[in-house]
Write a protein that binds this DNA or RNA. Structure first.
Length: 542
RNA sequence: GCGCCCAUAGCUCAAUUGGAUAGAGCAACAGCCUUCUAAGCUGUAGGUUAGUGGUUCGAUUCCACUUGGGCGUACCA
């Protein structure tokens, strides 16, 4: 619909050249009586033309050469909006396109040929994924889906570090539990990993090899076994959420391949670093940031900034047009340094999009649960999936804007899972599947012959919702906002349920019934496509 | 102290990125199943968009300040 209006406005701008000077939009009005699409063009021209907006609107409309089969009427309303009403016949034609393109309907080629990298989860292998990681994981994967829908070729990437202090403590923790199994009494330190999974790992080593590793150092076999097993568990959890990373990038490889050294050299040759008190500092103040920061400690060890910069350089070298980093809000102070460093080295930091999500507050019976992997005070994603299922988990983390501080009441999630909106969508899909089975028995089939019979309010509302899908996918991708898809689907499902209540199929005159079947089919396809973007299943029956 | 983020109906959140009369779901109340799935539909009630100023044709949205929360503010990652 929007494309057609853009076309006739373009034609009109040959005569009304001022239309070329403004950036006007076509929006869907909130109120039905304001039409199907509305333009603000006239209001934007008030200053330039020094005329009343409503007069300008009239002037524009006079030059619009439109097909009355497509546009029913055009009105000027309010302060100067130009409202367009589409003809019912034109609106119903969309069914043909949806049925034809089926599971591809809604995809676009706008960004085809471009490559994107989405880095998400990126939790170090020190313990199971918790609900805290859930939002990051689900959102990241959905953003990746959205980018694919608008044409990007996307690589999902997981960045991890198996060399730091956390990992040393992990090895120590496993070794100590192992020694306990061998009968040694010890005081398990408070700042070691307290979780039961540490005991499981130790038990596995014990079962396989008995006391063979009694005098083995903790950073050897113990750390390795722990990492292998924890990573396997993390991948298994992600698999349950339908998340598959293509690349697991080990921070350590940056050292092994000399990327860290290269980055240091690059800063030095550009005179962007200096030594002070035995450490190497980056001249961030010259790059417009608050203060200079250390990139190599006086011990010779780099700080996290340096590998982060080197890591992103590899992404540039791998040729991505868009690089997305998904972080929790605890990282909000770190990325400006990294971006500034990259920019100073001549990389286009506009290609990097850092998406910061706010934390999820876990509540249980009205009390805040403080999460800590170290203290084994957490609720894992696996536990959550066991309780409510992966569809609910995916939908729940997608349905809110990532800028919100989300409350997750566990007691409520368990008890009231029936009230989750995801069931509302899945129910609509299952309902349609059920209708389709029923019409087979009645010897009915869909037909595209008489779509112009779909004139009732409920039918038209549903059709107009279907029209919005493609644009909604595009906007969701461009704004990196997966919750828009949820909001849209809930509106679509509501429109369908209304249609279902008021427009029956069986027992209706044949031609109308067949047109309604076609409409139902098209709705089913859109619900399924939308849910697939979110990574949520579309069941045939419930 | 400073930086980033947030504040919308009793609760959880939307609002086409500056548009017209701020909308949904829960919860509350009143209705609708002998006919395609009632996990549904219809209706009622619920608001000074935290507060005060400003910017303009127009502000929940942008700016400033105030209040209240979250996360940071390391030669930790």
């Amino acid at each position: 619909m929007k494309e057609y209006l853009q076309l006739i406005f373009e034609e009109a701008s040959e005569k009304l050249s001022y239309l070329k000077s403004i950036n006007f939009t076509f929006d869907i009005p909130k109120i039905e009586s304001h039409g199907d699409l509305s333009s603000n063009a006239a209001m934007l021209l008030v200053k330039q033309l020094k005329k009343k907006p409503r007069d300008i609107a009239a002037e524009i409309i006079a030059e619009l050469n439109y097909d009355p089969k497509i546009i029913l009427k055009i009105e000027i309303a309010g302060p100067g909006f130009i409202n367009f009403f589409f003809s019912p016949d034109f609106v119903s034609v969309i069914i043909k396109n949806i049925l034809y393109e089926n599971e591809s309907y809604g995809k676009s080629k706008k960004y085809s040929g471009r490559r994107a990298n989405v880095e998400f989860v990126s939790a170090n292998p020190t313990g199971p994924l918790t609900v805290g990681h859930g939002r990051n994981a689900v959102f990241g994967d959905t953003v990746a889906n959205l980018l694919e829908w608008v044409g990007y070729s996307v690589d999902r990437e997981y960045y991890f570090n198996n060399a730091g202090r956390q990992m040393r403590v992990l090895g120590d923790s496993v070794k100590l539990r192992y020694l306990e199994l061998l009968g040694e009494k010890n005081n398990f330190p408070e700042d070691y990993y307290q979780g039961e999974y540490i005991k499981d790992i130790a038990k596995n080593i014990f079962d396989e090899s008995g006391n063979k590793y009694l005098s083995e150092p903790p950073e050897g076999i113990f750390k390795e076994k722990a990492e292998t097993q924890i990573f396997a568990d993390i991948k298994k959890t992600l698999e349950r959420l339908n998340i598959y990373h293509k690349i697991f990038f080990n921070e350590n490889s940056l050292y092994e391949e000399g990327k860290i050294k290269d980055a240091i050299e690059a800063f030095k040759t550009r005179n962007l670093s200096y030594e002070k008190e035995g450490a190497l500092w980056l001249k961030l103040t010259e790059l417009g940031n608050e203060q200079d920061k250390v990139i190599v400690k006086s011990t010779g060890e780099p700080t996290y900034r340096l590998p982060d910069i080197a890591y992103h350089i590899t992404k540039f070298q791998r040729g991505y047009d868009l690089m997305i980093d998904i972080f929790g809000s605890d990282h909000n102070a770190t990325y400006p340094d990294v971006l500034a460093g990259l920019k100073a080295l001549g990389y286009d930091d506009e290609k990097i999009r850092v998406l910061i999500h706010q934390f999820v507050t876990i509540m249980d019976n009205g009390e805040v649960v403080k999460m800590s992997t170290r203290k084994a005070n957490y609720i894992t994603i696996d536990q959550l999936i066991d309780e409510v299922g992966s569809d609910v988990v995916r939908y729940f983390f997608n349905m809110r804007n990532i800028t919100t501080h989300m409350n997750f009441d566990l007691a409520l999630a368990k008890k009231q899972s029936d009230e989750n909106p995801v069931f509302y969508l899945q129910y609509a899909h299952a309902r349609i599947a059920s209708i389709l089975k029923m019409i087979e028995k009645e010897n009915l089939n869909y037909s595209l012959e008489d779509l112009n019979l779909l004139t009732s309010n409920e039918e038209q509302q549903l059709l107009k919702k279907l029209h919005q899908f493609k644009n909604e996918v595009l906007l969701s991708a461009e704004y990196y906002e997966s919750h828009r898809v949820c909001t849209y689907l809930e509106e679509l499902a509501a429109a369908f349920h209304k249609f279902y209540t008021f427009c029956r199929i069986i027992g209706t005159e044949k031609k109308l019934a067949e047109a309604r079947i076609a409409l139902s089919l098209a709705t089913k396809i859109i619900i399924k496509n939308g849910l697939s973007i979110l990574g949520v299943s579309a069941p045939e029956r419930m």
